[in-house]
Every structure is written in C-alpha cells, then in structure tokens.
Nucleic acid binder design. Structure first.
Lengths: 105, 105
DNA sequence: TGACATATGTAGTTCAGCGATATATACCGT
DNA sequence: ACGGTATATATCGCTGAACTACATATGTCA
C-alpha cells in the first residue's frame, strides 16, 4: 500500500470525512509534508471503495456544494491496523541497523 | 519511496551485500513477508545507484559465480534515516487514531 | 538426472500517484 | 465589479516502480 493511500485511510480512522476534508486532514497528519492532489485522492477513493476498504457514509449539500462523506469499513480498519504494524516493523528494522546501539532495546 | 526500495536500503544499512544476499536479508528482516523477485531487485539496484544512494563496493567470484557487493553511500544512509522517521510518524498517526486511548501517551 | 539454491540480468505488464485541466460556488479584498 | 483564493468533485495522460515471466549459468544433493 502506497503512502497516499495509507494516509487517506488514516484520515478516516477517527470518523467520516469528505474528499476535500481528507486533503486537509492528510496535510495536517503529515505535518504539511504530504499534499494530496485531487487526481490522487479521487482515484484512490474509487479504488478503495472498489476494494471494500471504505464506503460512502452520506452526502450533504453545504453552500450549494456537494460533500460526499466516506468512512472506513471494518475491513478497512483492519487493513489499516495491519499496514501500520508493518510500517512500524520496517521503521524499527531500519533504525536498529542504522544505529546498532538501539539493537539492545 | 516504495517498501521494496526501503527494505533494500535497510539490508545494506549494517554492511555491504551482494544482490542475492539482499533477497535473503530482506526476507529475513520482513519475517518472510517480502520476497523480492530478481526483476524488482536488479532494476532497483540500478535505480538506486543512478540516484547516488548506493554504490558498488567490490566484486568477488565464489564458485565461479560473480558476486557484486553494494553498500550505502552517506546520502543513502541519510535518506534511509529520513524515510524510517517518516514511516514511524505515519504508523503512530494511524495507531493513535485507531485506538484513541493511545492518544494520551 | 532432475530439482533446487545461488547469482545476475532483461522484457513486458500493471498499478498508483502526479500534474494538468475542467467545472462550479463562496468569500474576501480592492 | 472584478480577481484571487478556498472549497469541492472529477477526468485524462504521463511516469515511476514493482511485478511476472523469461533467460542464462554453476554447484549441490537426492
């Protein structure tokens, strides 16, 4: 799973969000490091929906603009947890090798 | 940076390795989760070399078979550290949101 | 002798993120 | 009144990177 996809799922982990809100939330989560482009986001949302990791929660109209809210499916939450564990393991493996002093921890 | 690339750099973080050795080491690091294919590895090594993140350390012939050893460049080590920190941050962000009880830590 | 491990390499495919572009409304400053 | 910026969704074409499959070659073991 790519970083953009992972961060989209992360943004949805504490409640439903609409597309544009996800862009802001991902920027926030990543400390402005990752700024999702519209193309990345909406194609990813379609893909994640097809994969059953997210679902459309509801649609609202605010200021005459449609907001389509997405939420994690149970499968999506599980998948995010698995991916987070994988990232942690990879990061730890690298840091242990870069700094052998950490190996004893 | 993709997972395969990250794990290749990680495998080189504690000393030089030849291509086939990297495949074994990555399998080891990842708990047999990631099994690099030859195509993935050698194209990645070419790319990483072009990017200045790794370098050819030396070449040996063992049992009439060539072994080309690669090592991290200083830039490659730095890059790996940056990527590891990023993975840690992403994993923590996801885990905090999945389990709000962790948020207070 | 045939399968498997070791060892490097190329070719073609597929997936996903990116930039560019499109459309449309609201808000704010000048 | 007009332009710039933020909000909001969506499509198209490009590219980078991983994957499958294939190719080549030697050594080991059953």
């Amino acid at each position: 799973m790519q970083e953009a996809t992972f961060l989209i799922l992360t943004a949805l982990a504490d409640g439903s969000q609409h597309g544009y809100g996800i862009i802001s939330e991902v920027a926030d989560i990543s400390g402005k490091r990752v700024r999702l482009r519209a193309g990345t986001l909406y194609t990813a949302l379609d893909r994640l929906r097809a994969d059953g990791l997210i679902d459309v929660d509801r649609e609202e109209v605010v200021d005459n603009r449609l907001r389509r809210y997405y939420r994690l499916t149970p499968e999506g939450g599980l998948r995010l947890a698995v991916e987070a564990a994988r990232l942690q393991a990879n990061a730890n493996a690298a840091l242990r090798r870069l700094n052998p002093a950490l190996g004893v921890i």
